[in-house]
Design a binder for these strands. Sequence first.
DNA 1: ACAGAACGCTACGAGACCGTATCGGCGCAT
DNA 2: ATGCGCCGATACGGTCTCGTAGCGTTCTGT
Lengths: 195, 195
Amino acid sequence: METTSTRSERVRQAVLDATTDLVAEVGVERTTIDEIAHRSGVAKTTIYRHFASKQVLVVEAVHACTFIIPAVTDSGSLRDDLISCFSGMTKASYDGRLGDMMLSLMDAAQRDPELGRLVRAQADQRRRYATEVIERAVARGELPDDVDVDVLVTLLAGPLVYTKLVRRQRVTDELVAAVVDTVLARYAVNRPVAS
Amino acid sequence: METTSTRSERVRQAVLDATTDLVAEVGVERTTIDEIAHRSGVAKTTIYRHFASKQVLVVEAVHACTFIIPAVTDSGSLRDDLISCFSGMTKASYDGRLGDMMLSLMDAAQRDPELGRLVRAQADQRRRYATEVIERAVARGELPDDVDVDVLVTLLAGPLVYTKLVRRQRVTDELVAAVVDTVLARYAVNRPVAS
DNA sequence: ACAGAACGCTACGAGACCGTATCGGCGCAT
DNA sequence: ATGCGCCGATACGGTCTCGTAGCGTTCTGT
């Protein structure tokens, strides 16, 4: 493992960290270079030696913050795969700083094309992850061939996003299971325990 | 109907309208008093004669923009009531300016306590509307007594909110029907036509 | 040790925005 | 008509923020 880091890299990382922290706390618009300098302990001058503008700094900070996709599970059971998939994504992207940034990022993405691409790419990435799980189930015959995968993903992801962003509550594993079981019930996919 | 309006009232309304327009376009943070003055044709001085600060102006503008709750339907069919309920709310709050404001408002509400109360009140209002429809169905025996109404509302509202705010797509009546039917299928509530 | 690169500090110009002061003009009621 | 209240226009002080300049200091590789 390459743990060597030049001074330049350490400084750069400190700035990125302070930026994500600030964006999570006060949002994109209220994030200032001066405050980033203060938080990171890096002089404002030096920040501008690394990043051309506040705009690209925020974009790079968010980019560096992109959540790690959990390993795709393939247990052979659609229900288990979906629960593990959404549970993992929830932990990776809703808990912690990324979750605190989401609303502000989505808002800023409406006006900033660069951020817009980034946010959309992250959302697509998450969707694709769930889509793969579902398509594997279709291939196995666990779901009918004509199922609308797009709507299905929306039905699954929607309640979780809503709980996090609108209700501002934690997305519990119980909720994930309830969502998955409710949606799959329509397709008569076996649940382990009948309620 | 009281259509009389003093000059003062007309001016006030012009300012509120310009404010909501601007918030919908550029968000809360980038909305400036100077631009509101320019858009509304009302002098900045006069704006401050009506509203103490930009903060209270935005709050009042959003408040004046609060969506009208559609009349609660009671057809005797949970499915029809839910579809009419969510379809009506979608049109009332997602189409038009209010929909464009939502992300920015929710973001700003994280830091502004006044806006926070307002946004939360609106969200609660929407939830209560759907909750009533469901509780009536429970009373009729159309749903089991021990159903978790809170989770149920989340399952219904989530995919619609997600479609609007994250995917930035229109919430069609087809989607509303698909969501309602999928969620109700778990409770074996009759659908008119099997797919 | 030494040269060059990277960093910190202070200061600065420019622009945006807030909120206020001042004064002149228009509308409305009596 | 006239007095009062409301409005418009300009200008201003103050603050915040961006991004840059200049210069001394520290670090890094050799």
